[in-house]
Amino acid sequence: MLLCGAAAILGYFRPSLKTYADAEGMKMKFKTEGTSFLVYEEEEVWKEIFVKGVNLGATVPGHYPGELPATEADYLRWFKQIDEMGANVIRVYTVHNPVFYTSLVKYNRDKGQDPLYFMQGIWSPEEQLIERQDAYDEEIVQMFRAEISKAVAAVYGDVTVQPKHGQASGKYKTNAGKYLMAWHVGTEWDPMMVENTNKLHKDVPRYEGSHFSATEKASPFESWLASLMDLTAAEEIKYGWQHPMTFTNWVTTDVLEHPGEPLFEEDLVSVDARHIEPVDWNAGYFAAYHVYPYYPDFSVRIRPYRHCLTATGDITRIKPTFVN
């Protein structure tokens, strides 16, 4: 009986993930270096990892996007399918209900080796940004800061969120921090809002933070972003962790010029990741873009974007693929 009991205990409690800790005890599992993502392996060395991700929403067929009906059974089924297709990370755009985090920890605990990681997105006050056309609006800043604090606390199982239509809520008691790969701050930026913010606040001093700062070349909007990334870092440090950091961007506000774009607002202004830099953030920083095969219009109108070379050197037309 004692041997059976011991076997059951050993089978239930999986070995803890190996994490790096600096002299002050700050933990890291992932970091960026150059153009690579690195993971701290069981052999106590940093190794390059190729990140293969899947976006995961919070609803199911038959429900509106603002409804969050996914159950533990749904999440566990999705995690298994994502694993089987060869992905190693899930990207969520916003905070999910507590069941997402408890289900992911359960799935990885039962799986044992090669856990499924996640990137946590932090939703910006998108509607208010578009409506008011000013990122420095006091209410918008307060809303975004509150969302950042909530997201960090939710990941570490340290917050109770009251019900609000269209948003996740509940008691977050499961610490999923060891399965976090990175933070993804914000949503796609309305170009007219970015342009107007830069005009309204052209004299604002660049943001200089404890963990992230704006460079001398930063626009007022980029400086605003730096302040919010700095806040995200400060909130996470409270839990003794650092993870790589990025902000969401898309082709509409990329740093390239697209002379074939027919809509002027789609090539109006840039948000440049190079104008924000980590100051005291060993986990690192990276650039991230949403890229679609059908948007903006130049991507399907201009021949170089519509065709690519195959492995045999032939030119073939790129056809968008949609998966339900």
Rank of each mutant, 00 (worst) to 15 (best):
P191D: 00
T174N: 02
A176V: 12
V159Q: 11
K217P: 10
D158F: 03
H211V: 04
D190R: 00
A176C: 11
H165L: 12
V194R: 03
K202G: 07
K217R: 13
V194G: 03
V194Q: 02
D158Y: 07
Y156G: 04
E222W: 06
P163K: 03
A151H: 04
P205H: 01
Q167C: 10
H201N: 08
K173P: 07
M193Q: 09
N196S: 15
S213N: 08
S210D: 15
R206L: 05
A168V: 07
Y207T: 08
K150Q: 13
S169L: 01
A218N: 06
K171D: 15
K164N: 12
R206T: 13
W189Y: 13
S223Q: 08
V159P: 12
D158Q: 11
A218V: 04
Y172M: 12
T174H: 09
S223D: 00
K202A: 14
G186N: 08
E208N: 12
D158P: 11
T187S: 15
F221D: 00
T197P: 09
K171N: 14
D158T: 09
G177E: 05
G170V: 05
W189L: 09
W183G: 04
V159C: 10
E222I: 04
K173Y: 09
M192N: 15
S213Q: 04
Y179E: 01
G186Q: 08
S210A: 15
N196Q: 15
G166P: 11
T174Y: 05
T215L: 06
V185T: 11
T174Q: 11
E208Q: 13
G157R: 08
A214Y: 01
L200C: 05
D190Y: 02
E222K: 10
K171E: 15
W183L: 02
M193A: 15
E216S: 11
D190N: 14
K164M: 10
D190V: 02
A168K: 03
V204E: 09
N175L: 05
D158H: 15
E188P: 08
N196D: 13
